[in-house]
Amino acid sequence: MGFDHVAGVGTRLWRWSRTSGTQPRLLHAAKAAGAAALAWFVARHVPGVASEYPYYAPLGAVIAMQTTVFAGLRSGIQTLVGIALGIGVAGFTMWVGDPGILAVALAVGIGVLVGGFRVLGEGSSWVSTAALFVLLVGGAHAEGYSLGYLVQMAVGVVVGLLVNFLVFPPLHFWDAEHRIDAVNGVLADHLDGLAGVLREGKRDVAAWDRQQDRLDRAIADVRSRVSIAHESRKINPRGALRGSRARLQQDGARFRALERVAWYTTDLTELVARSGPVAEGIGRPDPEFADPLATALDQIACVIRGESPEDEADRAIAEVERALDASRSNPSHVAVTSAALVSLRGIVESERRATADIDTKTGPFGSARSAQTPH
């Protein structure tokens, strides 16, 4: 019994560390520390004048240790190009006149101007930085300093890239999938809130704005995570593993479906809580439509969370359709409810595509898939 308790605590801690991102952060920190130490060791054995500036190599290694191998390569190249341009700017400034207040201002001004090109990416800030270093730190030994600075940064970048490529190169599939699942919870909460508005006949515009902002931020976060997952497969030996391409395509399809769910949910909010019966400020809307709509919203929220079978949502929507078919009054409410019905169908169908054949704890078929092998 004691062993089971300890094992359960260990399992929860492991899941928490993975869900919170602690595991990849710890691995990334360990790799960065190792790359910096290795770069320092290698830098001290570089021949020539560059050996006098070994402290730049660990900096280059840290720059190359990005969340993906491809991002590290891009960041490293952009940084080296920015430094090379900064050295050129410093050379031009020193050719114009002796280092001084005006020379510093000129170096920074030209450096910022040159660094404004978007193609430089992360290297843009290094143009003016490198120009100042060469101008103020290099001083009378600017040529040797410039060469050592650039070479040792390149040594560090190469070491960092090799470490990131060879030691558990990161694939961020699970992180993207977890974030996709988390959006389901936000969507379900939003639908629950809509159901409450329909039942009570009260609205809070500020509250809906906050909820919509929360949904928008969740979707934007997932978009970023899916993009990182795509990028993490580039020039990554683990990206060639069987099934990784299919998994990435599946995640992309899930996200696009969830975007449609979010769009339909936003449209439904505008219809019901802003421009629909509740927005008229005349109290509780006609129960003929409000009750089946609220029930459908609650049921869809349960389906999204994986708390009830998918066909429960279809049955709840069918009740709304029957209410419309039987109605002979309130034509404006009929129009709004008909439009809301389209959004309800869109949410259910998009959510079905978003979670089809996926092993998650939320979404349609959630309980049925829980017995499958986890990622």
Results as ranks from 00 to 15, higher is better:
residue 195 A to Q: 09
residue 282 I to K: 15
residue 279 A to T: 03
residue 17 S to N: 13
residue 120 L to Y: 08
residue 275 S to E: 13
residue 300 I to S: 00
residue 47 P to C: 07
residue 297 L to A: 15
residue 96 V to G: 00
residue 35 A to M: 06
residue 123 G to H: 04
residue 193 G to Y: 13
residue 178 H to P: 00
residue 235 I to L: 14
residue 35 A to K: 06
residue 84 A to T: 14
residue 8 G to Y: 10
residue 263 W to M: 07
residue 45 H to E: 13
residue 71 A to H: 03
residue 204 D to W: 02
residue 309 P to S: 07
residue 184 N to K: 01
residue 367 S to L: 12
residue 12 R to G: 07
residue 177 E to H: 12
residue 218 A to V: 10
residue 121 G to D: 04
residue 19 T to M: 05
residue 169 P to Y: 12
residue 275 S to T: 12
residue 28 H to K: 01
residue 286 D to Y: 04
residue 244 S to I: 06
residue 154 A to E: 10
residue 90 A to H: 09
residue 167 V to S: 04
residue 38 L to M: 09
residue 364 P to K: 10
residue 175 D to R: 15
residue 40 W to D: 13
residue 339 A to Y: 03
residue 286 D to E: 14
residue 300 I to C: 03
residue 290 A to V: 06
residue 167 V to L: 15
residue 331 P to H: 02
residue 22 T to I: 13
residue 280 E to L: 14
residue 313 A to T: 06
residue 249 Q to C: 00
residue 140 A to R: 09
residue 301 A to E: 08
residue 55 Y to S: 11
residue 340 A to Y: 00
residue 361 K to T: 14
residue 285 P to I: 01
residue 141 H to M: 12
residue 353 R to G: 00
residue 225 R to P: 00
residue 146 S to Q: 07
residue 343 S to R: 15
residue 74 R to G: 08
residue 82 G to V: 08
residue 290 A to Y: 02
residue 271 L to H: 04
residue 158 V to Y: 05
residue 103 A to F: 13
residue 205 V to D: 12
residue 332 S to T: 03
residue 333 H to N: 14
residue 161 L to C: 13
residue 305 R to A: 12
residue 31 K to G: 05
residue 332 S to D: 11
residue 278 V to N: 02
residue 51 S to K: 07
residue 158 V to Q: 00
residue 326 A to L: 11
residue 312 E to A: 12
residue 101 I to A: 15
residue 70 F to H: 14
residue 356 A to V: 03
residue 151 V to G: 01
residue 371 A to H: 09
residue 374 P to D: 13
residue 55 Y to T: 12
residue 155 V to M: 05
residue 248 L to F: 00
residue 266 T to W: 06
residue 221 D to G: 07
residue 29 A to W: 01
residue 346 G to N: 11
residue 339 A to D: 14
residue 304 I to S: 09
residue 156 G to F: 06
residue 115 G to T: 05
residue 123 G to C: 02
residue 290 A to N: 03
residue 375 H to M: 03
residue 292 P to K: 08
residue 157 V to G: 04
residue 70 F to P: 02
residue 196 G to N: 10
residue 180 I to G: 02
residue 290 A to P: 02
residue 333 H to D: 14
residue 20 S to G: 09
residue 105 A to T: 13
residue 31 K to Y: 09
residue 232 S to C: 08
residue 154 A to C: 11
residue 341 L to K: 05
residue 78 Q to T: 10
residue 120 L to E: 11
residue 342 V to H: 08
residue 174 W to S: 15
residue 254 R to D: 00
residue 25 R to S: 09
residue 301 A to P: 05
residue 193 G to M: 10
residue 190 H to Y: 14
residue 60 G to Y: 03
residue 203 R to M: 09
residue 43 A to E: 02
residue 339 A to L: 13
residue 351 E to C: 06
residue 28 H to S: 15
residue 136 L to E: 11
residue 5 H to R: 14
residue 2 G to M: 09
residue 75 S to R: 09
residue 64 A to Q: 08
residue 17 S to M: 13
residue 291 D to A: 15
residue 241 L to T: 05
residue 65 M to Q: 14
residue 82 G to S: 08
residue 333 H to I: 00
residue 307 E to I: 10
residue 344 L to T: 09
residue 187 L to T: 12
residue 61 A to S: 10
residue 229 A to Y: 01
residue 179 R to A: 15
residue 65 M to C: 15
residue 178 H to E: 12
